[in-house]
Design a protein around this nucleic acid. Structure first.
Lengths: 202, 202
DNA sequence: CAACTAAGATGATTTACATCATCTCATTGC
DNA sequence: GCAATGAGATGATGTAAATCATCTTAGTTG
């Protein structure tokens, strides 16, 4: 039933998938690629909340909340996304309590995750925030201590809740202190201990 | 069925209802009083996320997320709270899809609200954050332009994501600029326009 | 391929806010 | 009744990080 009412759309790199403050009536599921979820502020400043990987829902909080997108989303690499109409989706929840329960869990996790990220951005200082970004990629995106940033420095800064300059500075400090190895966008976390401590004590 | 598996507990002012990082297996509903939801940080610093008023659920995000309380809660005035076991609660969701859907909405709204608050705390500067706190009480707690702070200056600061000194300073500035009237804990918002602008442009 | 534009990198300067210090005025308790 | 504790209030000082400025290198476009 879901499949009947769904369609897969392909987005190219940098395509905008939806903008905040627009109405929505679709649930989305990532099939392939990578998408960033962000909040647009005044000026050109934006705040990146999370990256979405294949298998995850997008926009659940907004769709089930008040049907107005609270965030914007754009593709950071070519991505396939499955769109599902809200109404059949609703019907399924009504009929299948188990699925509803599962969704309650998913949506709670999403809420807690965004909460964790914003807490990092707001109440930790710079080294802790940068450490959090590194841990995010290492643990949750790539599952490896060695990876390549899929974002520009500016975007990484927006993910850390800071400016590009401050991000670069702190990152090179980490490099000089041999906490990480860094070559362009290639990163390797050398001392997980220090990174974890920085993350924990903000 | 919910009533069978629920019990009402009375808390006195300043009582702690639950602490973050503890396991939980109950959904709570506020019957009367007022409760603050907060995050405890290192040192004695805490961050107040929201106040809970009668009729609202408490701890949904945590209970349905990973069953570990992510926040702490304490009563800021004598409060009655209804505790419902998670299991019968789950069963009801399984059987009653409509209720599940309703809950998905509630939990999404809660997520978005906390998101809004944290965005205020992290990405607005002081006057905007103080304006947000004033608007919060005015719009969402008391529904009036005139009200009495139920919290100390320290707690208000924690709600605004700042320190008690900075909060006091900014508040007296608002008073001197005739944006608000202020006498101890008695507040009246005089110029909603200015407060709204401050809130909007951070 | 020249002309722009954007990313990355650093140094210098500014600033918003926290921290520290001090004082008054209520409450609480022995 | 008077120490003692905590809230409220302000002024002085310090600092983390933003902003501004400059430069290099890489990528894009007419």
């Amino acid at each position: 039933m879901l499949i009947e009412n769904s369609s897969i759309v392909r987005f190219s790199k940098k395509d905008i998938i939806f903008r905040q403050d627009t109405r929505t009536s679709h649930i989305m599921i990532m099939i392939s690629g990578m998408v960033k979820i962000y909040k647009e502020g005044t000026g050109h400043r934006q705040i990146i909340l999370r990256l979405v990987l294949p298998g995850s829902y997008i926009g659940m909080l907004s769709v089930l909340g008040d049907q107005i997108h609270q965030f914007s989303a754009s593709a950071i690499e070519a991505s396939d996304i499955c769109f599902i109409d809200l109404n059949p989706f609703r019907n399924i929840i009504m009929e299948n309590g188990k699925y509803g329960l599962k969704l309650l869990n998913v949506i709670s996790q999403e809420g807690l995750f965004i909460f964790k990220r914003l807490m990092s951005q707001s109440h930790k200082q710079l080294p802790g925030r940068i450490a959090d970004v590194l841990l995010y990629f290492s643990r949750e995106v790539y599952n490896s201590t060695k990876f390549t940033f899929p974002l520009t420095r500016r975007e990484l800064a927006e993910l850390a809740g800071t400016t590009k300059e401050s991000f670069i500075r702190t990152l090179t400090e980490f490099k000089n202190d041999r906490i990480i190895k860094l070559d362009g966008s290639e990163v390797e976390i050398v001392s997980h201990d220090i990174i974890n401590t920085l993350s924990e004590f903000g």
